[in-house]
Computed example of a mutant assay.
Amino acid sequence: MLNIGYVGFGKSTNRYHLPYIKQRLDRISVKRIYARHLGKRPEDEAFWSKQGTKFSEDFDDVLEDESLDLVVVVTPAPSHFTMVKQLLERGHNVLVDKPMTNTLAEAEELVALAREKQLFVMPFQNRRFDSDFLTLKQVLAAGYVGRPIDLEVHMDHYRPNDGGVTGDPMNGDWYGHGVHLVDQMISLFGVPNKANFDVRSTRELGDYIDDQFEAQLFYPDAFKATVQATESAAVAYPKWILHGTKGTYIKHNIDQQEYDLKTGIMPGSPNFGLDAPQDYGQVVYYNQNGDRIEKTIPSLPGDYGGVYDAVYETLVNGSEKLVSDTEMLGVIKVLEAGLADSEPHTTKFN
């Protein structure tokens, strides 16, 4: 049994974490939850209290609890570095919500501290278990499109009235959404050789916090991956567009887990997170005989709880981490470079 504690009990904890833990209570036990202010989610508190979970408004209760095998930090992004550092210093393994830190120097400090104390630290990159991303990996592995040339991924919304956000740049779209897309690319292809960045504030001119970005990541063998997001797309781009030497794959709609979670449909419910057939991706490719083939690719099921399965395997059975230290540092390196200049710019990494 893996005994875990949570730092934070807000929307993200109760939408992206605990619903998946409920499906894994045979091997994961939530021993403690810290929140600055309890009583805001009485039904959720009641459920976990019945499971034996102890609630507290004192962070020291988590720091001092030596029975915890893992602490999960789900707090506002600017607090991540300080909280994770305190937990590591007190001997805790830590899973931290994205983005892990603001700067590469901070991330390197946490990784070095974890190595020194022989502890586990890793960001919660749940979108490695998006249905659409898992299906894209299958398309690449099958070789439908041949050698990939251009890969484009979007995370588009229509939120025209949500501009005017102030505060830490970590609250912008580049760190908030870009962290997922950059991690997906780095998990597939590694850190790019160089990148072109265009990170902007568009809804409220002069905003300090970005709400739109495009980053072109350049790799060997003439391959380019583009990650892009906007809050002003009344009609969204396809989620994935992949062109290769033999064909093209296009997937329009996003993973359904988030849609279901937002409407209160939880993991374990019938058809949770599953694509409708009309939302499956389409591949057009040419086979060895030169025949043009059009094929529908059924979406693989997604499961954000896969992060916890991977963490369990690492902490209990000694498996390699889902997100390696090289990958987590690479993501922060790219994110930090994206905000190095307020104007479009290019950064070389290798």
Rank of each mutant, 00 (worst) to 15 (best):
V30P: 04
I265E: 05
A195Y: 10
N3K: 15
M170P: 05
H180C: 07
K117Q: 11
D325H: 12
F189D: 09
A112Q: 06
E64I: 04
H80S: 05
V182Y: 01
Y285R: 01
I250N: 03
F55T: 09
P160K: 13
V121T: 14
E313V: 01
Y208D: 12
F81L: 09
E320A: 15
G338V: 10
M1E: 05
D221E: 15
L181N: 02
L136W: 03
V307N: 08
R32E: 08
Y16P: 00
R147D: 10
V165K: 13
A310V: 09
V311C: 06
T135M: 09
I28S: 03
S67N: 13
V71G: 02
E116L: 12
K194N: 12
A107T: 15
F55M: 09
L329C: 15
T245F: 06
V94Y: 10
I332R: 04
D69W: 11
Y237G: 00
K85Q: 14
D325R: 11
E204Y: 07
V316Q: 12
E66D: 15
G52P: 12
D69P: 06
P270I: 08
H345T: 09
P99M: 06
F9L: 01
Y20N: 03
D303H: 11
K22F: 08
G176I: 03
L113S: 00
S29T: 14
E336I: 05
Y286Q: 12
L134D: 11
L136A: 08
G306W: 09
D156N: 13
H154A: 12
E258P: 00
G318H: 08
P238E: 04
D260H: 15
A225M: 12
P76L: 07
D183E: 12
Q138E: 14
Y158S: 09
K137M: 11
F349G: 09
G39I: 06
P19Q: 07
N350A: 10
F189I: 11
I265D: 02
D44G: 11
Q51K: 14
A233H: 02
A233P: 00
G167F: 10
G264L: 11
R200V: 10
M122Y: 00
K251M: 13
T248C: 11
F81N: 04
P99K: 06
T13G: 03
P42V: 15
V334S: 02
P220V: 03
V283E: 04
K251E: 08
K117T: 13
D61N: 12
R159K: 13
K239M: 13
P42M: 10
L113C: 07
K137A: 11
G10A: 13
I149L: 14
V227M: 08
F223N: 03
R147C: 00
D260T: 03
L335A: 11
L242I: 07
K85M: 12
A222I: 02
K246C: 04
Y219W: 05
S67F: 02
T135W: 02
D255C: 15
F223Q: 14
Q288Y: 06
E152P: 00
A276R: 13
A141G: 06
R128N: 14
L63F: 09
R24W: 01
L261W: 07
F349T: 05
E214F: 01
T226I: 15
V62H: 01
